[in-house]
Simulated scan of single mutants.
Amino acid sequence: MSNLGTGFDPIGIVIDWLDACRERRLEDLLALYADHATLDCCSGERFVGGSGLLRYWSAKLRGATAAAFELEEILIEQDCIRLDYRDYDGSAVSTKFWFDAEGSITRTLCVPLGRKSARFKAA
């Protein structure tokens, strides 16, 4: 994914997203999403728009463990940014982020990471 000509830094936005999660800043986290964004969760559930994201993130941030939101790795993929990290409950997950032209997150897709993938730590 290239940010040439877009006027925003997708990796920077993902770092802001992770920081907002880590610091339990719900309003800042929600502000990173587009109005009609979708969040596809590891559980198979889909959350859509502001009300769906609020419902999802309120519970996750409230129930976050001490090991939550630890960075493992950030990768640039062909059409998105992939973040490997520790989820709210400390489990290893990978979330892909897609953006609109203004730099708002339009979609996230989360999948569990296997043990082999989780061993690669960010420097």
Rank of each mutant, 00 (worst) to 15 (best):
Y56C: 05
A68L: 00
E73P: 00
F97H: 05
D40H: 14
K121R: 15
G7C: 12
A37M: 11
C80D: 02
G49R: 14
A122W: 15
A68E: 01
L113T: 08
Y33W: 11
A66L: 14
T6C: 06
E45D: 09
P10M: 07
V93N: 05
Y85S: 04
L18N: 12
F8D: 01
G49D: 10
A101E: 15
F8S: 02
V93Q: 06
A34T: 01
S94V: 07
R107Y: 04
R107P: 02
G114Y: 00
E27V: 09
S94R: 12
V111T: 09
D100G: 01
G52E: 07
P112N: 05
T38D: 12
K121W: 10
F99P: 02
L53N: 02
F99S: 02
C110L: 12
D9S: 09
L18K: 14
S58H: 11
G5T: 06
L53R: 06
Y56T: 00
R22Y: 03
A122T: 14
L109E: 03
A64Y: 00
F99V: 03
L30G: 05
K121E: 11
N3S: 15
C110F: 03
G44H: 10
F8A: 00
D40G: 08
P112E: 04
S51M: 10
A67W: 08
G63M: 07
C21M: 06
S43L: 09
E73M: 14
E77I: 03
L30A: 06
E45C: 03
R62E: 08
L30W: 03
S43C: 11
G52K: 11
R115D: 13
I105S: 04
M1P: 10
Q78N: 13
L61M: 14
A68R: 01
R22M: 01
R119W: 09
I81E: 07
G103Q: 13
T38N: 13
A66G: 05
K96N: 02
A20N: 07
E73I: 14
R24P: 01
S43F: 10
R46Y: 00
F120S: 14
A101Q: 15
F97L: 07
P112H: 02
V93H: 06
D84L: 15
G63I: 02
G52M: 07
V48T: 15
D28Q: 04
G7N: 13
S104M: 15
R115F: 08
D35T: 03
A31D: 13
A118L: 05
L71D: 08
S117D: 15
G12I: 12
M1G: 14
T106A: 05
I76C: 12
L30V: 08
D16S: 14
